[in-house]
């Protein structure tokens, strides 16, 4: 009697459903591998030196590259970090060390909501905020758009890592006679620094692939963009424009640009996890 419980039908359901869950996982993983594999295969075979060193060739001619777009993306990310990182850090310190009650709740909730604003809406916002008053697209506007998108994650990850610092460390600092700000800057932040850096690197990697907000702010440019007040090309926008174009040569370059962009993002992702692992090792022994 004991051996026949649970009944066969339930055993079959059990095996079937558990197998299905495994199948779901395999399906998702195979989609991931297909995407990465296909991108790396198409992208790597489309790469050459010109791609990195030349600006786009006129339509119809083969050759040319996306040097201006790579420079543009780097400039945009620099500007975005200059805006997003300080505000995110300060806000994170405020939430973790000073805020309490309704103030903390309001800021935290608003940050999460801001994080969920569709990127295309962020593009509209910065268009009305910067581009309309200036009357033209610019690197500045693109950087501001990406910078605002960076704030929520920089802020919340900084807060999370600061919160994870044990209370006893803070008390130790205060007991030695340090002021609260001295404790924060010499004890709490150094203890969480690896985590904070990881969060910011991942944040930069996230906005590096954003396309929609750049369409109406940084726009695009076939040539080098000098200074901050002119439209600039960027890798994601180039991928979009080339992918929907009818030219094979541009398709090839879209793959190459996608390959370069994704390799960069994945590299940052892996490096930041290594930094975090190293930080954990240091703090545990």
């Amino acid at each position: 009697m004991r051996a026949s419980y649970p009944p066969l039908s339930r055993k079959i359901t059990n095996a079937l459903m558990l197998a299905l869950t495994g199948l779901c996982t395999v399906l998702v993983l195979s989609v991931l591998l297909t995407i990465l594999g296909y991108l790396f295969w198409k992208g790597a075979s489309s790469l050459n030196i010109d791609f990195f060193t030349k600006n786009p060739a006129p339509v119809g001619q083969s050759g040319g590259g996306v040097k201006n777009a790579m420079v543009g993306t780097l400039k945009l990310l620099t500007l975005a970090s200059a805006i997003g990182v300080p505000i995110g850090l300060l806000g994170g310190i405020y939430l973790s060390e000073f805020a309490g009650g309704w103030s903390a709740f309001t800021i935290r909730y608003t940050t999460d909501l801001l994080n969920g604003v569709p990127s295309v809406v962020m593009g509209i916002f910065v268009y009305t905020l910067v581009v309309l008053p200036m009357h033209h697209f610019s690197t500045l506007a693109g950087g501001i758009a990406l910078g605002i998108m960076m704030i929520p994650i920089a802020l919340r990850s900084t807060e999370d890592f600061l919160r994870a610092v044990p209370r006893s460390l803070r008390e130790g600092g205060l007991a030695l006679g340090a002021s609260k700000s001295e404790t924060i800057f010499t004890i709490v932040i150094p203890a969480a620094i690896y985590g904070i850096i990881t969060g910011i690197l991942l944040d930069i990697a996230r906005v590096a692939g954003e396309t929609a907000p750049l369409l109406f702010t940084a726009f695009g440019n076939l040539f080098d963009s000098r200074g901050w007040m002119h439209p600039t090309a960027s890798l994601p926008v180039v991928i979009y424009n080339y992918a929907i174009s009818p030219y094979d040569e541009w398709h090839r370059q879209a793959w190459a640009a996608g390959f370069v962009l994704l390799s960069g993002l994945l590299a940052v992702s892996v490096i930041s996890r290594l930094i975090l692992a190293r930080g954990k090792k240091l703090s545990h022994g």
């Binding site: 300080p86 505000i87 995110g88 850090l89 300060l90 806000g91 994170g92 310190i93 405020y94 939430l95 060390e97 000073f98 805020a99 103030s103 309001t106 800021i107 608003t110 940050t111 909501l113 801001l114 604003v117 809406v121 962020m122 509209i124 916002f125 009305t128 905020l129 605002i148 704030i151 929520p152 802020l155 002021s179 609260k180 700000s181 924060i184 800057f185």
Partner: peptide
């Protein structure tokens, strides 16, 4: 301490300002 408090407060509240501006502009 108070200086740090006020500066970080400004960082935190800038989120609210940005969100309010976003809604107002739209």
């Amino acid at each position: 301490d108070e200086v740090v408090h006020l500066i970080t407060l400004a960082g935190g509240w800038s989120i609210l300002v940005i969100t309010a501006l976003l809604v107002q502009h739209l």
